[in-house]
Write a protein that binds this DNA or RNA. Structure first.
Length: 890
DNA sequence: GCGGACTGCTTACCT
DNA sequence: ACAGGTAAGCAGTCCGCG
């Protein structure tokens, strides 16, 4: 960029006089660009050290403290190398293995027998066999195993003639070498290391001794195993995360047609803008000049450098320079789009592989030098959405996620990207990069902290946290704990051979075992309802009953009488279960330490957010552990473990219901881990809590108190009002995403009336107002006063259009109509359709008009929405329809 | 040939 | 591609009906 000198405070440009003049005029006329600020910016222009060519330095001999981010394997050197980030120098170091560690797998055959296998010993990658001792948890005994060592990972597995196939039965042979290496060296991604004289050294950053002692006291009564875990987790949960300097990138491509996303592999259209937004001093947008396209006006932040290009090749070269210099690049969907498009477009324009700092990996797109983190798969991860962000966003588009978390979204466009003036386009592109960046910086870097903490807990490098799901994270955590203790990592079939049977029948057809109890609600309005719930029921049950894959149905005869109620499974009495300790520990440290501090008002915002990050990261692991053991795709899948967990959960809620009755408290409703109590006294609540702690050994807490609750006859459907007037709506049609907007809005008007209700008497006037809402809505429907979009039913396509073979739901009909008009429809798309009077009675909003709307159907929708609440209030919908007819008569 | 009873499919929610 | 349980709405099938 040095050949493009700064001529204007605001705009950097190439050599185009006309554009310069235009820019000058435009910018001085712009109200949102303040000259003083620009002046400051010019004076503070960063000093660009010309020595920086790439983000990475290879094989350093000495470094400052660095954070371990990633690991890869160099096929030529036949060595693993780490990517370490130095937050002070803003550099990535590549450290190559100096220990001589080699890939291997395990066999149960003795060394002597294996040596007779000519195919094995003659394998070009074969190195040696060493006898080792491992502990077999499933059999609860030590075993001798043979460790077969190879020169490179592919010799172990991954080709048609790999060692793991030659020896037929191999253990630990499917663990990627990168991960195997980290475990063996006990390296934890996300923690600090430094290089001293070429050697890797762990940098310990434990909490202050006083804090350590305070926490150790909290674990005084816990098992020895739990105390050991605590000791090994201090570093993980207390080492601060450095402020990683990072740059978010977004690109715009000249699209061929409306609503068609350009194909990155074909990369047929020019890249017309690329923006970078950073949490330090890189904020710039690169724009391609186009014939007849006016400059237009800038509508985003100030202090953004704008660089124009005549040639797309020059633009790409500047972008690639950034991608080589910057250690940490963030995108939103860069794997599928931005980096992918850049790569293929560059090839198409004649760039050589060496000139492109991007590598296409199997399930990711990586940078040759720095780290690429794609926010799309991360936010798309269900566990992250639910446990870390409280289900804040309903779909994973940049706009939806940003609106939910940052309260701001993409710039609304009044025309197509291809029609935007140059600076408008630049603003739009820059804004996307900026909100992408802010998704990692908001709330004191909550997301970034989470990412690093998830790495530490799962023991996985950053790329796996980025792109893998919760089961892979939990697997990472479990495998590590196995490896460092010398436990053999079991194969899925080893567990299933002993533990595939279940003893309960699921209520839902096709499910493997019985789940939770849902208590039949007592319909009606109930005042002063107290909801008690068990503090993380399943994790508690796993901890208190010593549940783990190796302890449920253990091999000992003497444990067989230790039966889980409601099942035929028994639990080990001799050995402490690994899952039990691990989940129990994570749960305890969260509730005993981090949860409180995350809410503490005495702390600085910065500190509080840190505790929040830790608390959320722990929550992800705690809450998902039960589920993964019941999932066939999880490598430690163990049906009896999952089944025992829900059985004990049912036992806990069942006993609580019985105890409530015994205390004379009516249970109005309950679901899985909660009971809704009708107007209990303080003493009764205390009594129940005390009983739970002593009898079940699970904490039962007051979760919420309602001024009143309207329970319908349906389970998982209710509405409650808190003392402060806040309304709590669960499961009702009025809050479902697919309910038409006009229904949702009428419903929300009803809530506003209901939240004013304090007494039985208040309901009378409330009812009248609710009648009015319904009547008004009916009238507007009949007079077609609602815009089409308000009538739209919004349903997500959960699989490709072609895969709907058994039935054709309405949203699929609508989607196929759209497709026949040339629109591309893909999985995850939310189809907006309306119901019409003529067959097929469905039309996508885009193709429908108001006069073909099926009014009767919409009246039914409204009726269904209100009925769910009205039947709790003891009102029959007929009354309203009668009332409507009557009032219209007069 | 049509409608009611029934089952199955699909989606969105709750814990 | 972490679990099971529940509700709603529609699609599709079967059966009876002189």
């Amino acid at each position: 960029m040095s050949n493009q000198s700064t001529l204007l405070p605001f705009i950097k440009k190439e050599n185009d006089e006309t554009l310069e003049e235009e820019a000058k005029n435009k910018i001085t006329a712009e109200s949102n660009v303040q000259p003083t600020k620009n002046q400051e910016f010019m004076n503070n222009t960063r000093s660009k050290s010309s020595d920086i060519n790439v983000a990475t330095i290879d094989k350093p001999t000495n470094t400052d403290d660095c954070i371990l981010l990633d690991i890869d394997y160099d096929g030529t050197a036949q060595k693993a190398y780490l990517k370490l980030y130095d937050p002070k120098k803003n550099k990535i170091y590549r450290w190559y293995d100096t220990t001589g560690h080699k890939p291997y797998c395990l066999s149960k055959e003795p060394k002597q027998i294996l040596l007779q296998n000519q195919q094995l010993v003659n394998h070009p990658g074969f190195v040696d066999i060493i006898e080792v001792e491992k502990y077999d948890l499933l059999e609860d005994r030590s075993i001798r195993m043979s460790k077969i060592i190879a020169t490179d990972p592919l010799s172990i597995g991954g080709t048609s003639n790999s060692i793991r196939d030659i020896i037929k039965e191999a253990w630990e042979a499917h663990i990627p070498y990168r991960k195997c290496y980290l475990m063996d060296l006990q390296l934890i991604p996300g923690l600090f290391y430094k290089i001293e004289n070429g050697q890797l050294v762990r940098v310990k950053r434990s909490p202050p001794e006083s804090v350590k002692r305070e926490i150790e006291q909290l674990f005084e009564d816990e098992t020895q195993e739990a105390k050991q875990l605590l000791d090994s987790f201090f570093d993980l949960l207390f080492t601060p995360v450095p402020n990683i300097k990072r740059v978010a990138m977004d690109i715009e491509v000249l699209a061929e047609a409306v609503d068609v996303i350009p194909d990155p592999k074909a990369a047929e259209h020019p890249i017309i803008a690329v923006a970078f937004a950073s949490n330090y001093d890189i904020n710039e947008v690169h724009i391609l000049k186009r014939k007849d396209m006016p400059q237009g006006d800038w509508i985003s932040e100030d202090n953004v450098e704008i660089i124009f290009y005549d040639k797309e090749e020059d633009l790409l070269r500047a972008v690639f320079k950034r991608l080589s210099e910057e250690p940490f690049i963030i995108t939103f969907n860069g794997d599928n789009f931005d980096l992918n498009y850049l790569y293929h477009r560059a090839l198409k324009l004649g760039f050589s592989q060496d000139e492109i700092p991007i590598t296409i990996a199997k399930n990711a797109i990586l940078l040759k030098y720095g780290i690429h983190f794609d926010l799309y798969p991360f936010f798309h991860n269900r566990s992250i959405n639910i446990y870390a962000f409280g289900n804040a966003y309903k779909e994973t588009s940049l706009d939806a996620v940003a609106n939910a978390l940052l309260k701001k979204g993409k710039i609304k466009l009044e025309k197509e990207i291809s029609e935007l003036s140059l600076l408008r386009l630049g603003s739009y592109c820059y804004n996307d990069a900026l909100i992408t960046l802010e998704l990692t910086t908001f709330n004191e870097n909550l997301t970034m902290n989470l990412i690093i903490l998830l790495m530490r807990i799962s023991k996985l490098p950053i790329r796996d946290i980025n792109r893998q799901n919760i089961s892979a994270w939990i697997r990472g955590m479990f495998y590590y704990e196995h490896r460092i203790r010398g436990y053999l990592i079991p194969r899925p079939q080893d567990i299933l051979a002993m533990k595939s049977e279940t003893s309960t029948k699921a209520i839902i057809k096709g499910k493997k075992y019985k789940g939770a109890i849902v208590v039949n609600p007592i319909a009606g309005i109930h005042f002063n309802v107290v909801v008690l719930d068990f503090a993380s029921l399943y994790p508690s049950v796993i901890k208190t009953h010593n549940l783990s894959y190796e302890t449920v149905r253990c091999p000992h005869k003497e444990c067989r009488d230790n039966i889980i109620p409601g099942t035929t499974h028994w639990v080990c009495k001799k050995r402490v279960g690994l899952t039990s300790v691990l989940v129990g520990f994570l749960r305890d440290i969260r509730v005993k330490w981090f949860k409180e501090l995350a809410k503490s008002k005495d702390l600085s915002e910065d500190k509080r957010q840190w505790y929040r990050s830790v608390e959320r990261a722990l929550k992800v692991f705690i809450n998902a552990t039960y589920g993964v053991f019941g999932s066939e795709s999880f490598e430690l899948y163990c049906p009896p473990l999952a089944e025992s967990t829900t059985a004990l959960g049912r036992y806990a809620i069942q006993k609580t219901i019985e105890k409530s009755a015994e205390l004379g408290v009516q249970v109005l409703y309950g679901d899985t881990d909660s009971v809704f109590l009708a107007n209990p006294t303080q003493e009764q609540i205390e009594e129940l809590k005390k009983w739970s702690k002593s009898f079940l050994n699970i904490d039962l807490d007051v979760d919420k108190i309602y001024r009143w609750v309207a329970l319908s006859t349906r389970k998982k459907n209710y509405l409650g009002v808190f003392p402060d007037g806040t309304v709590d709506v669960k499961g009702l049609l009025g809050k479902k995403r697919n309910t038409p907007k006009f229904c949702q809005e009428a419903f929300s008007e009803m809530l506003n009336i209901l939240k004013e209700v304090h007494t039985e008497k208040d309901f009378e006037s409330a009812k009248k107002k609710i009648f009015d809402i319904i009547r008004e809505s009916y009238r507007k429907l009949e007079n077609k006063q609602y815009p089409l979009e308000d009538l739209a039913i919004k349903v997500q396509l959960t699989k490709p259009l072609k895969s709907y073979t058994k039935t054709t739901p309405q949203h699929v009909k609508a989607a196929r109509l759209l497709e026949s008009k040339g629109k591309k429809i893909s999985v995850g798309h939310i189809i907006h359709f309306v119901k019409t009077v003529t067959p097929p009675n469905v039309k996508p909003v885009e193709l429908a008009s108001l006069n073909e709307i099926d009014v009767a159907k919409y009246k039914e929708h409204l009726k269904a929405t209100f009925e769910q609440v009205l039947d709790a209030l003891g009102i029959e919908f007929k009354d309203i329809e009668g009332y409507t007819a009557l009032s219209e008569w007069f």
